[in-house]
Amino acid sequence: MDRSGRAILVLVFISAILALLVHYGGTNSVHEQYPQPSEIEGDYDAHVGDRALLWGEVKSISLEDQRANISVLTANGTMRMTVDGFDTSVQSGGNIQVYGTLRSGQTIDADAVVVVNSSGASRLYKYATSAIGALLVVSYFFRHWWFDPDSLAFEVRGDG
């Protein structure tokens, strides 16, 4: 296939990828099982009694009372929530998921809590390991392939 044919194919795929991202962005809210943070923040009382799955950063925690205060990202900023029935060990600054029922007074009655990042530092750990992964895949790939500048395409290495 000639270069213009390839260029057209690339454009077709990139357009399709962008269309997919737009379609997802435009339709996922219809398929959400639970009210989203921005909706909850917009009219909290209307959502009391609803089931919700929230992601938040832990601000403070009291294991004796099984309570934690978290801040949940919304479209306009953050929303403070109290988690009732919190029995998991986590540092403030950590990230959690909580699934439960919304109660009055910005409180969620937790059925389950998952610690996503136990502290702010574990985010750094994730990025560091991901960087190592990227290096690994790039170096392994170029051990077996090389980019031929004449045809502008990857070609198998002679010894690979």
């Binding site: 194919l9 795929f13 399709a16 990828i17 997919l20 031929d148 045809s151 395409a153 990857f154």
Partner: peptide, 14 residues
Amino acid sequence: LIAGVISIAFQRRY
């Protein structure tokens, strides 16, 4: 879709 655009970066026979 993303696999599609990446595979075009290879020689046609691959």
